[in-house]
């Protein structure tokens, strides 16, 4: 559904609470300058949403670099040690046998497997670490209540501020967001209690 359908989702007779506000932008440059203003206003529980990674947005949002590289390095070092230990234990301790007069354990012959396990462990850490740090999978999220948010994966840019933010005040936050957008209305997102 890439069509513009800005009608809010139907509100049924269940108790609702305000999840937060959402505002839409048409291009990346506008989003970046808007993000700077939200950052400077001091909000914490807010986010920018884009169809592709927009560089400059990390700084504009004041994000700190992720810890992922340290995780990956740790996993790689573990993989390296596991590879060496596995080969040492199996071929030089637990089941020694002479083959072609080769030593039971010697680095040159044991490098390939050590290397592969280093890569395997670090790549798995990069992939799984990205998911865990990003709280994925997360099949439910308040933003999925918004219909127009569906276009975030196609061609639209958004900023959302959550109601759980300590600075969140319905009127003030809404006013700030209205001043950011390119004339687009600020959408209130409701979720079930």
């Amino acid at each position: 559904m890439s069509g513009v359908d800005t009608t809010p989702a139907t509100i049924e007779e269940v108790p609702k609470k305000l999840w937060g506000y959402l505002v839409e932008f048409e291009d990346a440059a506008e989003l970046v300058s808007a993000a700077e203003r939200v950052r400077d206003a001091g909000y914490k529980n807010w986010d920018a949403h884009t169809p592709f990674p927009v560089h400059g947005l990390n700084d504009a949002m004041g994000l700190r670099p992720t810890r992922l590289p340290f995780l990956v390095f740790g996993a790689g070092a573990t993989g390296c040690l596991v590879g060496l230990a596995l080969q040492f234990f199996t071929n030089a301790v637990d089941y020694k046998y002479i083959i072609s007069g080769k030593p039971f354990f010697s680095l040159p012959a044991n490098i390939p497997v050590t290397f592969e396990l280093t890569i395997l462990f670090s790549a798995t850490a990069a992939f799984a670490g990205m998911l865990v740090l990003n709280n994925l999978p997360q099949w439910y999220h308040g933003l999925f209540h918004s219909r127009r948010f569906a276009r975030v994966t196609a061609d639209r840019f958004f900023i959302s501020i959550e109601s759980r933010d300590p600075l969140f005040e319905e009127q003030r936050t809404k006013a700030l967001m209205e001043s950011l957008g390119s004339g687009g209305e600020v959408e209130a997102i409701w979720e079930e209690e």
């Binding site: 986010d47 949403h49 990390n58 992720t66 992922l68 994925l136 999978p137």
Partner: peptide, 17 residues
């Protein structure tokens, strides 16, 4: 899709990964 929502906080880690 694991609930991907194009969040820039997620993109940051995603790109690094």
């Amino acid at each position: 899709a694991l609930g991907w929502r194009g969040s820039n906080r997620q993109w940051e880690r995603y790109e690094r990964a």
